[in-house]
Amino acid sequence: MKLPFHHISRSFVVAVFVITSTLLSPLFTTLHASAAVPRILVLNSYNIGYDWWEDEMTELRDGLSRVYPRLDLYLEHLDTKKFHSKKHFPYLAELLTAKYANLQLDLIIAMDNAALEFATRYRHRVSPGTPLIFCGINNYEPAMIAGQKLITGVAEYHDSMGTLELALKLHPAARNIIAIHDYTDTGLAIRRELEESSQHFPEVRLRFMEEMPLEETVKRLKTITPDYLVLMLSYTVEKGGRTFSHSEAARLVSEASPVPVYSVYAAQLGNGVVGGRMVEGQTQGLKAAELAVSIINGE
């Protein structure tokens, strides 16, 4: 059985934003669960302090707490921004299998791509038969959940085309776009989205900053000419392994850039970024909470 899948995007144009939500598949079977104190395992792809996840988690916790004043949340961090090879996944699965062996979970929530990958691979060992919700998924494809049962979730869509359209409308003299992203799974996934969108703008040349320490990226930005615009994608891990929050990376890039900087992440607003059509972690967490309540209540 597959539960309903949702696709969310939130757009910010400077101070104006629009929320859209589309139901993509029907509810085939109602899941019945009765839990006075729901027990929910949350798998965080990243680490404590990563601003995107903190936003997701705040809204998830608040959304659940409004319905369930008593709630048992079990939180596990996969730490893939710092250990992106994922070689630790099999060992972590073994640990969690032992840890939750005698605990009946009502729900598993996988936040972002790495957690979904982990959950679909190991959920049958960690907590057999427990429904799975995912959120914050980049480049969602049905193949990601092929063969899975009792699963539903929220996709993270970056409106790269809308952001480019906005930037070029406000800066019609721009002829070059330089995009900055890291080379993690997330950064490369968003790059692919942008490459597809850029085909609609043949009048501009799109370049991607090669993988290098952020300090070197900042130095190169200082030399670009006025016919450029800068587009920030996901940048949280530089070559060499040093990590950044979205806001920190945006501030460093914006301070160095002699031209306007646009972004697809709301977490980068207020740090020198002009604007863009952006996604935010809060929306993902809130929608995941709504799905969780529906499933636990058997709706």
Rank of each mutant, 00 (worst) to 15 (best):
F5C: 04
H6T: 12
H7F: 13
H7G: 02
H7I: 10
I8P: 00
I8Q: 05
S9D: 12
S9N: 14
R10N: 04
F12S: 06
F12Q: 03
V13T: 15
V14G: 07
V14R: 11
V14T: 15
V16C: 06
V16K: 09
F17T: 01
V18F: 15
V18T: 11
I19F: 15
I19Q: 13
T20Q: 12
T20D: 10
S21W: 05
S21F: 07
S21I: 11
S21L: 13
T22W: 10
S25F: 11
S25Y: 04
P26C: 06
L27S: 05
F28N: 00
F28D: 00
F28V: 04
T29K: 11
T29S: 11
T29G: 05
T30R: 07
L31I: 12
H32W: 14
A33L: 13
S34N: 09
A36N: 13
V37F: 13
V37P: 01
P38D: 09
P38A: 01
P38Y: 14
P38H: 03
I40E: 09
L41E: 13
V42S: 06
V42C: 13
V42P: 03
V42R: 02
N44M: 06
Y46D: 08
N47T: 11
N47I: 07
N47H: 14
N47E: 15
Y50T: 01
Y50G: 00
W52I: 11
W53L: 08
W53M: 04
E54S: 04
E54M: 02
E54Q: 06
E56D: 02
T58Q: 10
T58M: 03
T58W: 07
E59I: 00
L60P: 01
R61P: 02
D62M: 04
G63F: 06
S65D: 07
R66D: 08
R66S: 09
V67G: 00
Y68H: 10
Y68S: 04
P69F: 03
P69R: 03
R70S: 10
R70D: 14
R70Q: 06
L71F: 10
L71A: 07
D72T: 01
L73A: 03
Y74F: 09
L75H: 08
L75V: 13
E76Y: 05
E76H: 11
L78T: 01
D79R: 11
D79Q: 08
T80L: 08
K81N: 14
K82E: 13
F83H: 15
F83T: 13
H84M: 08
K86V: 08
K86M: 08
K87N: 14
K87G: 03
H88I: 12
F89Q: 05
F89D: 08
F89G: 12
F89A: 02
P90E: 05
Y91L: 02
A93N: 13
A93R: 08
E94W: 15
L95P: 09
L95C: 01
T97R: 07
K99H: 11
K99S: 05
Y100H: 04
A101N: 14
A101I: 07
N102F: 02
N102H: 12
L103S: 00
L103W: 03
L103Q: 07
Q104F: 01
L105Q: 09
D106E: 06
D106F: 04
L107P: 10
I109A: 01
M111Y: 07
M111N: 07
D112W: 13
N113P: 08
N113G: 09
A114V: 09
A114E: 10
A114T: 05
A115F: 12
A115E: 14
A115G: 02
L116V: 02
E117T: 15
E117M: 09
E117P: 05
E117Y: 15
F118S: 01
